[in-house]
Structure formats: C-alpha cells, structure tokens
Design a protein around this nucleic acid. Structure first.
Lengths: 353, 353
DNA sequence: TCGCACTGCTAATCCGATTTAGCAAACCTG
DNA sequence: CAGGTTTGCTAAATCGGATTAGCAGTGCGA
C-alpha cells in the first residue's frame, strides 16, 4: 500500500557509494572526513532525487536523541490561555525541528508519573512541566535526570530545575500605575485579594501574592492607600459579582483593581446593577487579558498573561538545558520572568470630580 | 548523570536466560513457544525487580509501530473548545497506551506538509487532521498512505478517509424544538444566518448550513415560519450586536436563535440596550456552549459542541483504521456524527402573552 | 539401538541509521 | 625503491529490542 520509505541504503546505492559515505556526506561531515567533491555531489543529488529523509526513530535509537520534547501540563483545556502556552512552545520547538508530545495530568500525581515514563520510553530530549495557573508545585522525583523546565510554576522544594513564570510583581505595579497615571488617588479597591499582604485566596496561587506585592509597592510609593481589599474564595465571575455588591452596599469606589478578568466580569455586572458606569463613575483594571476582556463593554483594560511568550521561553530555556554539558552539575534553579504587557482599553478614565 | 536505562539484556542476564527468551516471555508468547514455568517466573521476577520498560524507540525501529499518533490542527489556541478536542483525543489515546504529537498549521498548506513529514519521520501509527471549526478541507495528498481521520472536517474532494463531525443538523432541530416546546410560534428570528437555505456566511462553515437545515426542518414540520433571518459576516459579538440592533429598530421579536454563543453575547447587549429582558420578553437559544454561555446573565441555553467527545471519537475511528488489514482497500470515507447535547439554562421561557 | 518427534531454549538476523576502525591506492621522501 | 603518509572510501559494530531458524537433550516406538 504505502511505498516503502526511502532509506539511506537506497541513496547510497543510487549514488554508487557505501551507506557510510552517504551518511557522512549528509551529516555534513564529508569535508572533514575527506570525501571528494564528486562523491559528495553524487550523494546529494541522489538524496534530493529520492527525497530522502532520515528515519528519526532509527536515529533516535542510535544517537539517543529524538528531536522531540514532552510537554506535560495539569490541564490543557480549562482555559484558552493554556492553548496559547502550548502554541508558543509548539512554534519555538518547530523552529528547531522538534516536535512536542503533550500530556495532561489533571493534577493526578500517579498519572504524571505514568506520562513521564511514557515520554522517557520514547526517549524525549527534554521535558516541560507546565501548570495552567502560576503556582508552586512538587517536582516529581526523577525529573532531574533529564533536561527539564518548569513552566508557569515554581518548585515547592529547592530544585535545580529552571522555571519560567510571568512577571506578576511587575504586572501588579503596571496595573496600579495605570490608575495613578489616570489621576486616581482615592477610593481604589482591590477585588479578589488584599488589602493586606496576607489576604490572598488559598491554594498557593503565585499570581495573587505577587500582583498584590506590585500593587501595594507602587501605591505606597505614591503615598496612596487602597481604600479596601476584598478576597474571593475563587476568582470566578460569581464571586466578583458578590464581593463587589457587598462593597457597593457600603461605599462608592472610584476605581477597582480586579485580580483577573473573570472577577472583573462579575464586578461589571455589580456596577451595572447599582447604576454605576465604567469608566465615568468607576475605573477598572484587571489581569490576564482573557478573551472576554475585549468582549466586555466597555472593553476592559487589563495586564496580559503572556502565555504565548511563556511557552516560547520555556522551550528556549529547555534548549539551553539540553545543550548544557551533561557532566557539569547543572543549573541553579534559575527563575526566568516573562514581562506582562498592559492592554489599555476603555475601562480606565480620570476620576469624576 | 542519569543511570542508564534497564534493557532487555539486563533482565535476561539477571534471569539467567538469553535475551530471546526474555523477549518471548515479556511479550506473552512464552506459553505458546513452550517456555517453562520456571524460566517464565524468573524472567518476570527480574523484569519487575529492575523495573524494566521496553524502549519504545527500539521497538519502533524493529516493528514499525511507535504507539504514537499525530494530531494536526489548523489552530490550537483560538478557542478553548479546541483544547477540549485535544483533551478528548489525548485521553482516548492514553487509555490505549498511545501518546500524541501535536502540530498546528495555521491554515498554511506548506506548514501542514512539513508537519506531516515530521510526523511520518517519527513513524506515527496514524494521524488525526483536525479543524477547529467544522468545515470542508482539502485533504493533503499522501494522507491516504497511512491511517488517518478527519476531525471536525469533511473532505472537499471525495476521499477514502473517514471523518468525525458534530451532528449539526440534529443540533439545529434540537434548538428549534427548544423554542417550540416552550410554546413559541411567532416572532422567531435567526441571528447569524437564514432565513433562506442559502443565507449563510461565506467561508464554507458546515455549522451554518447544517444548523439552518435542522432549524428549518423542525419549524416547517410544526407549520412555523421564522419571522426573519439575519446573516452576519462573522460570528463575533460585535456583529451579533449590530444585527440585533437593526432588527430591534424595526420589530419586537419573541425569540432568537443565535448561531453561536458569541453572537448571542452581542444579541444580549442589543436587547439590553433596548430595555428588553431575557427570557421574559425574548427567549434566546444558541449553539456551541462556549464558556461564556454560563457566565452570561441570564445563563444562556445552548446546544453544545461536543469537542471532548469529538476528540475521543476521532481516536476510536483512527484505531479501527489502524487495525484495518493493510491489504484491503480501506474504508469508504465514512462520516461519523457525534450528537450535540442541549444545555438548558435560563434564557428560554414561554412567550409573553 | 536407531530414528524421529517433541521440548525448551538460544544464535543470528533485522530494523535504519551513526560511528569507529581500518583498508587499498596514490603520493612522498630520503 | 622500500617505507611512511595521505587520500578517499568502506566494513563492521552498535543502539535495543522482535523474530526466525535451529540446536541440544529427552522420550518413545520399532
């Protein structure tokens, strides 16, 4: 049915040389090993004519390198953002001729172990262990035996593995600055966490902690105190709605910093319920740049999670790990922070006089 | 650094037998080939002790089967739904001990060719070619040489490849029935396509055509004529908003069938602008069950795209293709339709008196 | 006791590349 | 012109298993 693949032996036969010679030429070591111009040309020509492509499985067996990396995440499907992360990784990998295996653990450690095994059984050259929201994770043992990178995650225990995470602290600063720049000084409420350093949802979300740090830092520098902070058990629209409603029963805020766009969606609904207009009455900044941010009306100004860039960066870092000499003791668990750009839209204005 | 993998030879040595014998036992052919109980036990014990796992790369080279399938789609990231499709495929594959390579073409035929090559170079056992929205696609030549399945897509030219698509016609019927069952008979408007069979957006979207067929069929059977149909150039919120606004300037509809949830989001905004309440004044049904459907207020009743199930089904079908005897002439381009379940929520009610 | 069948296991080959070791011919060199 | 170098290429081993062919040893019938 399918015509047999062209092998190196076929090329060698057509070119009238041994497979060894063909291999040498095609791997670019012909010059170095004194293969004549003539033979080199013949091999190249034969390979081109037959459209020869080396069988990577065979190469993998011989050399141990499969031009393949494993991407294991806790969830693929939950957010559209996860897709961007994979996409970034995918493209960066493809640019180097690598393919991606993907696997999803759903947070199940046993499944994670199985996937790791399955990937090692297939001789992947490296592994990206990704979390779909930024947090600290327990690094499965045996991870350090092959090149690996944590993506959107930090190791719970000290680990030699490098991590790639969004720069949430800077994001917090940027969000706060957006309000300050618009002239806000008072009535700034935090929706989703705060106002104190410790007022964060349970679950070890790095985003909550770090965004809060950045926000508090910039506000403090400007001599501004947040008028209030409102923790949500989970950053979902319904909690954003509930928490903002409670707030509005007591106060008229001038600006909201919502800890993510879903929370902001709920906040919008609450503001609408109370007859308040965004941004005329209340400015809103948020985080994530979820697709709904640009569907909301008015469109939401938000600090974007750079998922695509995170994915790319993880691959870059993984390649330096792979390239690292196997002998030297490996890295120091370096943390790479990827900038989070703000997307200025329509939800921030100067405070009403 | 990393302790060398345990090989079959290691197991054989510990068990005191030849690699051949070990291989026979471990592949379950020991009984058949008259290996003694004693030896069998020794091999099994050694394998367990050493935690032996066969190197799939090696097996791949020898047997040509890598327990791997390739999943190529036009986009991974655009919609969260795509993720569900991959997830379904991923889980179905994993249940059989298979891994997934993923690749994204972005609609670029050249890239598609490259990815296909890269996957064949890695000896995948089969390929799933997926589209992120249901449509007809040009099947790349050379696809038929290996087991393959079209997912969420139909071949533009006749092809022996099987397809897996959502049952959009039935979905259209279900949506229409939801309104009829609530008692609607008049003022039913279609937002996104219709009212005529031909009034669909350009671009070869199967969804538009088939949903419309189902809707028209059920309405016709009930002797109901849609009060109007409103094509959108693209099914995005802004068009839903614009089109619905135009409609509301002229008429007071009783019910809307929106062709997807993003369009419905726009329609909600328009209804809100005109002071109309869902579902008291106007009922709304939609398609897709995008995450926003349950975030909207009132929550949107919608006929779900079964992305997860589509992914699973594609893998199932692919496995029957792989299992199919290589000699027989292959399938007939069978089309597998996956049911689309309705998610009844809050946006449909009986028409106001 | 010879021949044959059966039992229980192993040697050897193969998959498709890479890589090491080495060989024959041409070329110097003193 | 013998002996050493260089040039240009190839045989053979290797990666880790699967598979085919076949080899000892035992039992049994004639």
């Amino acid at each position: 049915m399918s015509p047999r693949r062209v092998t190196l032996a076929d090329v060698a036969k057509i070119a009238g040389v041994s497979p060894t010679t063909a291999s040498l030429v095609l791997s670019g070591r012909g010059r170095e090993l004194r293969i004549s111009q003539d033979v080199e040309q013949r091999v190249l020509k034969a390979a081109a004519e037959l459209q020869y492509r080396p069988n990577i499985v065979s190469v993998g067996l011989r050399t141990g390198t499969t031009r393949t990396i494993g991407f294991i995440s806790d969830t693929v499907a939950t957010t559209r953002l996860a897709g961007d992360m994979i996409k970034g990784a995918l493209e960066a990998a493809r640019e180097r001729g690598f393919m991606l295996f993907i696997g999803e653990t759903e947070g199940d450690a046993e499944l994670e172990r199985l996937l790791l095994q399955a990937m090692h059984d297939r001789q992947v050259d490296g592994i990206i262990l990704a979390s779909m929201y930024t947090r600290t994770i327990k690094v499965p043992k045996g991870m350090a035996t092959a090149p690996a990178v944590l993506l959107n995650a930090l190791p719970k225990q000290p680990s030699p593995l490098p991590s790639v995470i969004p720069d949430e602290i800077e994001a917090g600063r940027v969000a706060a600055r957006a309000l300050l720049d618009a002239g806000h000084r008072e009535g700034i409420h935090l929706i989703g966490a705060g106002p104190g350093r410790r007022n964060v949802p349970a679950g070890g979300s790095v985003a909550a902690v770090e965004r809060l740090i950045g926000i508090r830092e910039v506000l403090a520098e400007a001599g501004v105190k947040p008028a209030g902070g409102h923790v949500c058990p989970d950053w979902q629209p319904e909690y954003g709605l509930a928490v903002t409603r409670e707030l509005l029963k007591k106060e008229r805020p001038k600006a909201l910093i919502c800890f993510n766009d879903r929370v902001a969606l709920g906040a919008y609904q609450a503001l609408d319920d109370f007859g308040l207009e965004v941004p005329a009455d209340v400015s809103v900044v948020s985080f994530d740049d979820h697709p709904i941010a640009s569907w909301m009306r008015p469109q939401l100004t938000t600090v974007a999670l750079p998922h695509y860039e995170l994915g790319r960066k993880a691959v870059d870092v993984l390649f330096t790990e792979i390239g690292r000499d196997r002998e030297d003791d490996g890295g120091e668990g370096e943390v790479h922070r990827v900038p989070m750009p703000i997307r200025p839209r329509e939800s921030v204005a100067s405070p009403a006089a």
